[in-house]
């Protein structure tokens, strides 16, 4: 039921993503205002836009002997990777491109973030960003394999790597029902790949903001916006993977896609407030001893269901 949209949809995609990301940022600001005891809490909704204004007028800066090309390239790549990955995500019946290898495309684009964070951390020629950069590599080592297996599980259920086929296969029953563990693993890895709390070690305050420590002005804006877009993309891809895509009663498919995406995004944003930062020296073991076997067992179970069905 998913088809490739006309070319102009390339222009619509970033707008939709940005709107969702802005909503996520507003929700986050509102939740923070509530904890801080600031009233009215509603006033916090405009915070993200004010921050954008602040960063737009702020001057960029440099450090002593940076690797400027890699530094800027790394900072911008997060945003680019997020938008490129989102190209295969259908909004209702239409995706910018319903590639035959859509799931692989998403995975490939999202792996660009590995390079992006490392380059952005390395390029500044400064200790804290460097530490942030290699913290992300350790994190990637923990989440990437369980993440890929979760993606494969969904693809296996549909017998296709085409995202449109995944959605079509969930017309009767959403994958989340018979692949709950894969869904859970996907959500955890979505948080980790967008280095969102509680997996924010690469940009954590304990190393003065890590990769972001030396960023100012437009550079910081591009990086921070990229992180929000990445979180949005990761949340949006959960919908065709596990939550039935545009399927649902009454509402049109595109609206179902948006509602489901907003719901997943809301949960991811909210989760930030519930947990302290999970350090990789502790989590690495959990990822390899618990998450990876769990994802494999889920894959096996899904394979048996497909065989028997």
């Amino acid at each position: 039921m998913v088809e490739t949209a006309p070319l102009w949809s390339v222009l619509v995609l970033p707008v939709v993503l940005a709107a969702l990301a802005l909503g996520a940022a507003s929700l986050d600001a509102v939740l923070a205002a509530r904890t801080a005891g600031r009233a009215p809490v509603r006033a916090a909704m405009a915070e993200p836009l004010r921050e954008v204004a602040r960063l737009l007028v702020q001057q960029r800066r440099t450090t002593l002997a940076p690797d400027a090309v890699l530094w800027r390239l790394g900072g911008a790549s997060v945003l680019v990777a997020a938008v490129l990955a989102a190209m295969v995500i259908p909004l209702g019946r239409h995706a910018v491109s319903d590639l035959a290898v859509g799931v692989v495309w998403f995975n490939a684009m999202e792996v660009i973030v590995w390079a992006a964070l490392w380059l952005a951390g390395w390029g500044a020629n400064s200790a804290y960003p460097l530490i942030g950069g290699y913290r992300f590599l350790a994190q990637a080592l923990a989440y990437e394999l369980p993440h890929m297996i979760a993606l494969i599980t969904a693809a296996l259920g549909a017998g296709s790597l085409r995202v449109g086929q995944l959605v079509a296969a969930q017309a009767d029953l959403w994958f989340v029902v018979w692949m709950p563990a894969a869904f859970a693993v996907y959500l955890v890895s979505a948080l980790a790949m967008s280095f969102w709390e509680p997996f924010d070690q690469p940009v954590q305050e304990d190393v003065a903001g890590g990769v972001t420590a030396e960023l100012a002005g437009a550079d910081r804006l591009v990086f921070v916006a990229g992180r929000y877009l990445l979180l949005t993309t990761a949340a949006a891809f959960a919908v065709p993977l596990f939550l039935g895509g545009g399927h649902g009663p009454l509402l049109p498919p595109w609206l179902w896609s948006l509602v489901k995406t907003a719901a997943v995004l809301g949960v991811l944003v909210w989760s930030r407030r519930r947990l302290p930062t999970i350090r990789m020296d502790r989590f690495e073991e959990v990822a390899w001893v618990v998450l990876l076997p769990l994802a494999l067992v889920q894959l096996l179970a899904a394979a048996l269901v497909v065989l028997v069905r």
């Binding site: 205002a33 916090a44 305050e205 903001g209 972001t212 960023l215 100012a216 910081r220």
Partner: peptide, 12 residues
């Protein structure tokens, strides 16, 4: 009280 989030570095 004002919601001025502190920065971690001079760059921020």
């Amino acid at each position: 009280a004002w919601g001025w989030a502190p920065a971690a570095t001079p760059a921020g």
